[in-house]
Simulated scan of single mutants.
Amino acid sequence: MTIKVHEKLLLTGAAGGLGKALRERLKANCSVLRLSDVQPFGAAAANEEVILADLADSAAVHTMVQGVDAIVHLGGVSVEGPFGPILQANILGAYNLYEAARKSGVKRIVFASSNHVTGFYRQDQTITADHPPRPDGMYGLSKAFGEDLSRLYFDRYGIETACVRIGSSFAEPKDRRMLATWLSFDDLHRLITACLTTPVLGHSIVFGMSNNAVTWWDNSRARHIGYVPQDSSDIFREAVYARTPAPDLKDPVAQYQGGGFVVAGPFGD
């Protein structure tokens, strides 16, 4: 059972893949779900509000945040690419969101960080939230900035944040790498629910993964959140092996946790 501890919840990035997966699920967490994205994505349904906002527009973000009790922040650029759009959406956008939260009195945020904050650790390593960031590109760098920004706003203003380093959240794993990084949609909702409802969140870094047998991430630093994944990539392992070739261990894509992001670019194009 999901306990409603917030009257009005804001979900940014509602038109994206994970936003669509969470739209119905998050209604169990609140009485009113406010949805936001930069582009039109349809009318509000029952118990919903829809607000269009560019994260780089400070005034629009302040309007978007006003009156909500907590925020699930998925908005922004979610892939590797040129620095300009990432700067506007992920760096300036994150600053605008936290400033709006501060001014509006919002005290809890679930920030969609990424496994690409640590993408240059090797796949033969197991890391914890205490390991220093090793971003694998401009996207990962922007998420590392967001984690540091949220730490500042916790230390200075008491805004609690869970930085959820999302692995690969899809209906099922697409390749062998995702057997380690996969996060089911239902486990994503369980993780966000835990972040919203744990009595004391503080500033926490959590790896967003299901209960996969193979993993590169130790989530023990986040036990106070109470996240218990119930799904696993293991049921897909045989099918994934059958349709994909064995990895070339000399290929950086197979060496590093960030996969294809470690060779994506060039950044300026």
Results as ranks from 00 to 15, higher is better:
193 T>H: 13
264 A>K: 08
94 A>R: 10
123 Q>K: 15
148 D>K: 13
198 T>Y: 02
108 R>Y: 07
35 L>Y: 00
236 F>L: 01
176 R>F: 09
201 L>W: 00
183 L>V: 01
237 R>P: 01
7 E>I: 04
221 R>Q: 13
139 Y>F: 15
266 P>G: 00
19 G>E: 03
186 D>R: 11
258 G>A: 01
15 A>K: 03
65 V>A: 03
254 A>C: 08
101 A>G: 06
105 G>N: 08
255 Q>N: 08
176 R>G: 11
25 R>Y: 07
53 A>M: 09
7 E>H: 14
109 I>N: 06
68 V>F: 05
238 E>R: 15
123 Q>R: 15
247 P>M: 10
13 G>P: 02
265 G>M: 00
190 R>K: 13
198 T>D: 07
46 A>Q: 14
109 I>H: 05
164 V>I: 14
99 E>I: 05
57 D>K: 05
90 N>K: 02
146 G>F: 01
75 G>K: 09
223 R>L: 12
172 E>T: 12
19 G>D: 06
127 I>K: 06
143 K>C: 06
104 S>C: 13
231 D>L: 05
148 D>G: 14
141 L>K: 08
59 A>I: 07
140 G>L: 00
191 L>T: 04
190 R>A: 14
214 V>N: 13
42 G>P: 05
256 Y>I: 08
132 P>Q: 07
34 R>T: 08
118 T>D: 14
15 A>Q: 02
84 G>N: 11
85 P>C: 10
230 Q>M: 13
261 F>G: 07
136 D>V: 04
35 L>R: 01
106 V>Q: 03
117 V>R: 09
115 N>S: 10
175 D>C: 14
44 A>V: 01
43 A>F: 04
171 A>N: 11
97 L>C: 09
198 T>F: 04
104 S>R: 02
72 V>L: 03
158 G>I: 03
112 A>N: 06
94 A>I: 08
143 K>A: 05
67 G>D: 03
55 L>R: 04
264 A>F: 10
71 I>V: 15
25 R>H: 10
39 Q>E: 12
15 A>F: 00
264 A>V: 02
246 A>K: 13
31 S>T: 12
131 H>P: 02
30 C>H: 04
216 W>S: 09
150 S>Y: 05
17 G>E: 10
237 R>E: 14
182 W>M: 07
110 V>L: 14
18 L>P: 01
210 S>H: 02
100 A>M: 11
140 G>S: 06
128 T>W: 00
269 D>T: 12
138 M>F: 10
262 V>S: 01
106 V>R: 04
224 H>M: 09
168 S>P: 03
223 R>W: 06
172 E>Y: 13
262 V>H: 02
178 M>V: 04
211 N>Y: 02
72 V>N: 01
171 A>T: 13
264 A>N: 08
253 V>T: 07
95 Y>K: 14
15 A>R: 05
52 L>V: 05
238 E>T: 14
185 F>R: 13
130 D>K: 15
230 Q>P: 08
187 D>V: 04
228 V>W: 07
15 A>S: 15
264 A>M: 11
245 P>A: 11
124 D>V: 03
190 R>D: 13
233 S>T: 09
196 L>A: 00
248 D>W: 00
163 C>Y: 02
12 T>Q: 00
2 T>H: 06
135 P>S: 10
118 T>Y: 08
85 P>Q: 08
96 N>Q: 03
250 K>N: 15
196 L>S: 00
220 S>F: 09
232 S>L: 02
98 Y>Q: 08
28 A>W: 02
179 L>C: 05
58 S>T: 10
